[in-house]
Write a protein that binds this DNA or RNA. Structure first.
Lengths: 266, 266
DNA sequence: CGAACTTTTGATATCACTCAAGGGACGTGG
DNA sequence: CCACGTCCCTTGAGTGATATCAAAAGTTCG
């Protein structure tokens, strides 16, 4: 069985077609050749950053936008007691707008979780991209709406769900998002995220993450081995944590196909 | 002593100048006479709705936008176990975009908490307002950024703060927002919100809200009597829950003034 | 003035946290 | 290739925060 293999018409491995950014936006809107060229141009210069490094922190405020091409990162906030709350995970293909976030300065930082390949877009290039490529702008707007929906989901989870459900939902979300950029099969994906990070995202302690994960494993729902998530029973997992896939993506053949197969096997 | 009195140059009571919507947007951008007229026009037809009524629910999807002119409401989500998580409170002057929220349908409902005066804006009027009044559009964008920042704050609170701090921060937020639309003095405001609602917003049980509130009262920080919040020691309250006022509002003389007085008394 | 709703109080139960120690995995240097 | 250190995950025991249940007290409103 081929892991990470995705049913994309144009390549064996999703990552070989353009970059994750192009792939993600392509799944959200029908981009023209010129749009694609502009996206490629804007990501031409990227840098590798080490794991566990701040790309942006609260005071220091670079402008423009940042695109994560490979690796995992997160937005987070630090508290006075040293605690950390992760606000969202950034996966390959995700863009983070640094200009339009700030009424009175940014209130969060962005840090890598794994080694990351990051493209920085200057303010001028960014606003030009938006103004002269309306389809790209529309795709980014949709991406933003999805992000907001996820944030609301997290809020509901933190407020009203128990640890195992919270964790399970997070894993479902990550699997789905990885699939959307061609980095996951129907039931597996690489997840370079430590248990501390899961804890800081779900508002739980590391110890409790460990125990919740074990509960999910014992229930035969999933397992995580060597930084890889393997969902054993997706329908039951979804039912367990009341996760409903966001089918908000528009023209993406492969994602629809993959999920159809999954549900067919249920 | 005059409660609800606000140091606005144009009236004794904030509510008599235009409506809360106009007041709020005026504090976010410098509106022209034409902008003001357009805002007034768009809110011309408003309806009174009873307390505890759904204005919008998840399946049924009216379009356009909704403006809350008077009263308190909230966005919320229901869970399968009957639980409810409030995602944000809506105060007079708040607008809720019903069109641009939905990738795959709306994922939350909107319900009144008190009796409310609500203006519905049709999709066409709404998009016309945005396109032909760029300053209004900019003000609404800023308002949205503030909303998002508040949502992140809530997430951090739910994930990492204890009950009394969470509640205290919520009360600080509500006081500040009420001030921004001229519905509060420096230390008091009307708050037609029940303890169940505070619980559903902070992810706590009603019982625990009651106890946390008592802790805040015993600490001499604030009290709530007859649906009215009275902050007794604002600086200490802010310090206690690590609340920092969002000074993102731009040209609003009165809010700046009021807070200057407060801090001066500390 | 009474009924329904909201808040408070007390007692008990549960979920998740903290602390502390042990076990694996991985990398590094001898 | 092994020894060792470090980092991450796991396990167990005890504690703390918050939930639940039930009933009393207070409030609002017709």
């Amino acid at each position: 069985m081929m892991l990470e293999r995705v049913n994309s018409p144009t390549s064996d491995f999703g990552r070989t077609v353009g970059n994750a950014f192009v792939r993600k936006l392509s799944s959200l809107a029908l981009l023209s050749q010129m749009d694609l060229a502009a996206l490629a141009g804007v990501c031409a210069h990227s840098r590798w950053e080490p794991a566990r490094k701040d790309l942006v922190h609260e005071d220091l405020a670079p402008s423009g936008a940042l695109v994560l091409l490979e690796g995992f990162a997160c937005r987070y906030r630090r508290l006075s007691d040293g605690g950390r709350q992760i606000l969202s995970f950034l996966l390959p293909g995700d863009l983070c707008d640094l200009d339009h976030n700030l009424p009175s300065g940014r209130d969060y930082a962005i840090g890598t979780l794994s080694v990351c390949n990051v493209a920085w877009i200057s303010s001028t290039n960014y606003s030009e991209l938006l103004s002269s490529h309306s389809t790209v702008a529309a795709a980014l707007r949709t991406a933003k709406l999805l992000e907001e929906a996820i944030l609301r989901d997290w809020l509901v989870g933190l407020g009203r769900r128990h640890a195992p459900e919270r964790l399970a939902r997070l894993l479902c979300e990550l699997l789905e998002r990885a699939q959307a950029v061609g980095l996951a099969s129907a039931d597996r994906c690489h997840l370079p995220i430590m248990q501390v990070d899961f804890g800081d995202a779900t508002g739980l302690s590391t110890v409790h993450i460990s125990r919740s994960l074990q509960a999910l494993r014992l229930a035969g729902l999933l397992e995580i081995v060597a930084r890889r998530l393997h969902v054993i029973d997706l329908p039951r997992l979804h039912a367990f944590c009341e996760f409903s896939p966001m089918r908000a993506r528009l023209g993406d053949g492969f994602a629809v196909e993959a999920s159809a197969i999954t549900w067919g096997a249920a």
